[in-house]
Amino acid sequence: MLRIEQATYDAIVEHAKRDHPVEACGMVAGPVGSDRPTRLIEMVNAAGSPTFYEYDSTDLLHLYREMDDRDEEPVVIYHSHSATEAYPSVTDINLASEPGAHYVLVSTREHGNNPGPVEFRSYRIVDGVVTEEEVTVAASDTPEENS
């Protein structure tokens, strides 16, 4: 199960809507071993594409260094699909390389840049096997975690 705060959930949805029809991508880091997604990092989609995303390689290195320095790890790795459902594609499955992370997919196909509900789903992707999991949106966690 993925447990995520409402504010983080909303920020991911807002990012996906803002970047539509390009695929939005990013990460929510959290303390190592905590399984708590606490720090959202929007990433630039270096591919700038409606059907593909990739972090810029320099941004990727900086992100991992920063997480290392802060004793964080990737808890959520998210991206949007702008014309298809919020389910991992073959590409998503083949390229998934963080077996400990929750892979979140948001689909903006219904409302694009406009207000309205989106599909927001979460998966584990390990050794090519996709397992969908429940998403629980929590009103708020401990107040001091917003560091």
């Binding site: 695929e23 990460m27 594409s49 409606p50 991992p88 590409t91 390229l95 963080e98």
Partner: peptide
């Protein structure tokens, strides 16, 4: 030397 898998994917 640092090795990092790309974070990439998409509907394609």
């Amino acid at each position: 030397v640092v090795i990092l898998p790309a974070v990439a994917g998409g509907a394609r």
